[in-house]
Design a protein around this nucleic acid. Structure first.
Length: 303
DNA sequence: AAAACGCTCAACCGCATGCGG
DNA sequence: CCCGCATGCGGTTGAGCGTTT
């Protein structure tokens, strides 16, 4: 039984978008808003697949998209975020205003991966077994395992992997519960979902209120991912701190006292922090230090 | 001048995930 | 809880353009 196609493909335009199509799509979305992508082409009078419309809008037509070359600051940020997050382009893009995941992915595959490769070769004695990078489509440059493959890097990969890169499968922490601490001053309470997927903090408060230690799906996966790598959290934190600190010193106004705080950083999504700040635990502990997260991994209370 | 080669990036594809009925 | 739909995501492809031979 085959998969149902996202849309009937007969009679639909494919390939590059024309100026007219762009105009129609942009006008329609301005008038009706985003969403309902499947029906959008029909209603807008476009002979395109809904997915195609969505992609075109998100990657090209959206008004807040930044054009032009990636700046050095942006490049450095991409590298750092990639070290931290792996090939999770949408998460990386979410922290670089005006850039799309597709753009960052392309930039990484065409430019940064080569730089990283060159650095690796330069710094390591025997070259990796992998043949030289030619065209991106001929040689995959991903750091993530393909679907169905184990998460752990192969031995040859592991040897070539910088120690600060941890390989993750995209995980989404939906709810995380924090053990009730004896004294709120002893440890910083931590919402691990903020370290991994800050976009979804809502569930924390209610569960915290219960004072239970309950580990939800995302946390279990996270814990699993981190098993044997006890500096997972501190590493994440250090990366972010390094990142934050650097930008604080530069032209950007980073608050270097927190790993990811609701500050004025231009590299973090404002809406994201808007949600965060509605969470009492973050309000009360706005200066929480993610390094304190390490205690969660050492805790014997994990199931 | 032109063929071959290499690079970039928009677009496509299939799977994963969330959500509502 | 299950199922189907809508959307999001990351990997991959190929057209088009620039550079080299």
């Amino acid at each position: 039984m085959g998969r149902r196609p996202c849309c009937a493909k007969e009679g639909l335009n494919r390939g590059a978008w024309t100026a007219l199509e762009d105009k129609i799509l942009a006008a329609y979305i301005r008038a009706h808003g985003e969403g309902k992508w499947r029906n959008l082409p029909k209603r807008a009078g476009l002979k395109r697949c809904g997915k195609s419309c969505r992609l075109r809008w998100l990657n090209y037509l959206r008004p807040d998209i930044k054009r032009g070359n990636i700046s050095n600051d942006e490049e450095e940020l991409i590298v750092r975020l990639h070290n931290l997050l792996g090939n999770r382009w949408s998460l990386i893009a979410g922290r670089i205003p005006g850039r799309t995941d597709n753009e960052i992915k392309n930039y990484w595959n065409t430019t940064l991966a080569k730089k990283a490769k060159a650095q690796k070769i330069h710094s390591s004695s025997p070259p990796a077994q992998q043949s030289s990078l030619s065209r991106s489509r001929n040689k995959k440059m991903t750091v993530e395992p393909k679907k169905g493959e184990p998460l752990a890097p192969k031995p040859s990969q592991a040897a070539a992997t910088p120690p600060h890169v941890f390989r993750t499968k995209a995980i989404r922490c939906t709810k995380v519960l924090i053990p009730a601490l004896t004294s709120p001053n002893e440890h910083h309470s931590f919402n691990s979902s903020t370290a991994i997927d800050p976009a979804e903090p809502q569930a924390i408060q209610s569960d915290q209120d219960k004072g239970n230690l309950e580990v939800h799906r995302g946390t279990e996966e996270l814990h699993e991912t981190c098993a044997g790598d006890s500096d997972f959290f501190s590493l994440s934190c250090n990366e972010f701190q390094a990142c934050s600190h650097e930008y604080a010193e530069g032209e950007h106004n980073f608050n270097n006292s927190t790993c990811m705080g609701p500050d004025q950083s231009p590299y973090f999504d404002e809406a994201m922090f808007k949600d965060w700040t509605s969470n009492y635990c973050l309000e009360e502990r706005a200066n929480l230090d993610l390094e304190s997260l390490a205690f969660l991994l050492d805790s014997q209370e994990w199931p």
